[in-house]
Structure formats: structure tokens, C-alpha cells
């Protein structure tokens, strides 16, 4: 297990799982979110292959009202 930051909250996760496998465990649906890791955009096409590293900062964003 490794420790990462998910939307600025500490989480423990299995380093062997791909991002696409972690997201449902965290309660997210891939098609309704966009992701950045350590400030860099991660295209949806990479979720299946990408594995997190300890200390990664993951931002999971969804649509909101804007001006």
C-alpha cells in the first residue's frame, strides 16, 4: 500500500492497481470526471495503464457552475 493525496485528502491505495481500477473503489465513474496527477492532465485513455506512486497528488474534477 502507498499513501497518496486525493483531492487534498490522504488516501492509502494498492500500488499494483491501475488508476482505472482505483477510481471505482473511490466511488468515481470515469466518464464523468477529469483527472490531473501532480498538476499534469491525465487523458482518460491512460487510466488503464497508469499506476500511482507514493506521494502522488491526484485531482479528480467534475462539472460545476461557472461564470
Amino acid at each position: 500500500m502507498i499513501s497518496i493525496s486525493l483531492n487534498n485528502e490522504r488516501r492509502e491505495c494498492d500500488a499494483n492497481l491501475a488508476l482505472a481500477e482505483l477510481l471505482p473503489l473511490w466511488g468515481f465513474e470515469c466518464e464523468k470526471i477529469a483527472i490531473a496527477i501532480n498538476g499534469d492532465f491525465i487523458p482518460r485513455s491512460q487510466y488503464g495503464d497508469l499506476r500511482l506512486n507514493a506521494g502522488d497528488q491526484v485531482d479528480v474534477l467534475a462539472p460545476v457552475q461557472g461564470g
Binding site: G27, F28, E29, L61, P63, V64, Q65
Partner: peptide, 22 residues
């Protein structure tokens, strides 16, 4: 219409309600 993105918790269902409104 202008819109934005923000961090969301899973309990908010990924902004689903707003998305449907849009």
C-alpha cells in the same frame, strides 16, 4: 453558457445533477 470544473467527492456523484441540467 459558461461552466467550470472543481474537485468533487464521490458522494456528489461527479456533478451529475448539474451535468444533466446543462
Amino acid at each position: 453558457i459558461t461552466v467550470s470544473l472543481r474537485r468533487q467527492s464521490p458522494s456528489e456523484a461527479g456533478g451529475e445533477g448539474f451535468w444533466q441540467q446543462l
